[in-house]
Write a protein that binds this DNA or RNA. Sequence first.
DNA 1: AACTGTTTAATCCCAG
DNA 2: CTGGGATTAAACAGTT
Length: 322
Amino acid sequence: MPRPGKSSYSDQKPPYSYISLTAMAIQHSAEKMLPLSDIYKFIMERFPYYREHTQRWQNSLRHNLSFNDCFIKIPRRPDQPGKGSFWALHPDCGDMFENGSFLRRRKRFKVLRSDHPHLQAGSTKSAVGRLSQFPPYGLGSAAAAAAAAAASTSGFKHPFAIENIIGRDYKGVLQAGGLPLASVMHHLGYPVPGQLGNVVSSVWPHVGVMDSVAAAAAAAAAAGVPVGPEYGAFGVPVKALCHSASQSLPAVPVPIKPTPALPPVAALPPTLAVPGASQQPPAPSTVCPAAAASPAAPLLEPTAPGAAETKGGSLHSVLVHS
DNA sequence: AACTGTTTAATCCCAG
DNA sequence: CTGGGATTAAACAGTT
């Protein structure tokens, strides 16, 4: 079914890397983890470009999942049958993107291992022992737990700063007075810009929320974000999740380049918004209480010697400057 | 069989 | 120019 603007959008490749796209999908999920098939769905629902040549880009995406340390594999539990594992973001991948931008990743995320120095940085991609070796029990929200772990560590930055999302993906919506930004942000589980410094002890999905579209728009404008229709990457429906107190919004969209020379494309029509049905978190109620109550370190630690000698590793990681 | 995941390699692009 | 990141292709193994 052709949509308005399809021709101007679908043939345009989104300016996001596969890593970014995958991270978006994972971040968008309630449990901060998705099976491969749902990652596919997320991307295809939002980016018509990726509704074609699926063989090609899905292969690339799988390659990225395996190749990049920033993605960790979480096994399914027995009561979650299906193909493949869940994929989540490594808790320490916060600085992966330059200036928190989805658009470019200037630092490569690699896991460091402390127990075997000779295997550090760059040698963690061996197929030996991955997170899949973790017992599948109690890992229903390992990603959230990982986020908590990351939050508990110093200097955590959100991997995909909402500032950038505001600046790029939402501005068209904002201009149009469409989706309530704050609601969407909350739905996505993004920390409020400006709160990043003091909400690091919160788990992503539950951090504070702003509710002022005007403030967001003003902030975006103040940050010099160019206006006009662009990718509506997150044309997500706003669920009844906006229930937090309002916050000020010292938003600071930080585009990679002062003026990203992106092809002018129309924002995604609301009809592209994911119906939400595809977002079926794996047993949300199975979140390990211990994980919720404390940093995820225990969950992410190996149950057997060497079990975590993976890209998930022993949670020692580094963002390697290029 | 189809899907998922891993790995290697070639190529292009960009920043330094 | 060089190194590294991103993309694409492909082969292969394991799983459902």
